[in-house]
Design a protein around this nucleic acid. Sequence first.
DNA 1: CCGACAACCTGTGAGC
DNA 2: TGCTCACAGGTTGTCG
Length: 274
Amino acid sequence: MPELPEVEVCRRGVQPGVEGQVLLGAVARVPRLRLPVPEGMDRILAGQRVAAVRRRGKYLLFDCRGGATDGTLIIHLGMTGSLRFVPPGTPASRHDHVDLLFASHVLRFSDPRRFGVVLWQASGEPAHPLLAVLGVEPFDEGFTGEWLHAALRRRAAPVKPVLMDSHLVVGIGNIYASESLFRAGISPLRAANRISAGRCERLTAAVCETLSDAIAAGGSSIRDYVHSDGGAGCFQVDCAVYDRAGQPCRRCGGVVRQVRQAGRSTYWCPGCQH
DNA sequence: CCGACAACCTGTGAGC
DNA sequence: TGCTCACAGGTTGTCG
């Protein structure tokens, strides 16, 4: 799935075919993904106009207006979720769980592992609990070295799993956590609260650069990720350390190593990262 | 409060 | 060819 760059690429790919369009309805073929799909989604969405497609962390937000129940459709792609446009009437295959129906096309949500989420948030309701607990956006002004330094003070765990904690910062998944730390020259094993203010400054910059580069490259191409138009991303070929265990570091020539942290694979170059 | 871990699912590739 | 196992982009809840 999709970390922040893939979700942002997905948002930009989907936006032209959705914004300003009127929904004829929706089809849900499964009662639940990671969480239950909203009851009566077809009735809720039918007749609404999609005013905007936004992103918060790894969540896509479709603002819907014009119905009796204005609100926001929330979609999370989980590990293997994807959105793509198909012509009306296209038969659904095994993992095509939800369709958003427009007059001239269908936006189809597919997700083999079903770790994704589709939710409805009516206007006026308090922020959905899943969104309310999210941390700062990497591209927001609040994501500074000073802020990160303060946030890491309380965390004794290795910095890599902390960097992936969406309650602190959103959008940094397993790939870009390793890549950002490589770019910043910081070992993923280093205790979060033992990173200097100066290196936190460097780390926030590295995170933003890594994510921006990935967005510019069109997202990652790992396994089943596809763009809304069906084309594969191409970022992974440029990974400095992720999934490169045993191979030479592109910067110093040393051997890239792999370790397991909090149940996830981490990759780093001991020669470049301390 | 913090952190490690299991759980939620299916698919794929490696090894036998 | 076919079986079994480990592992894969995320997040939440539980337990120590």
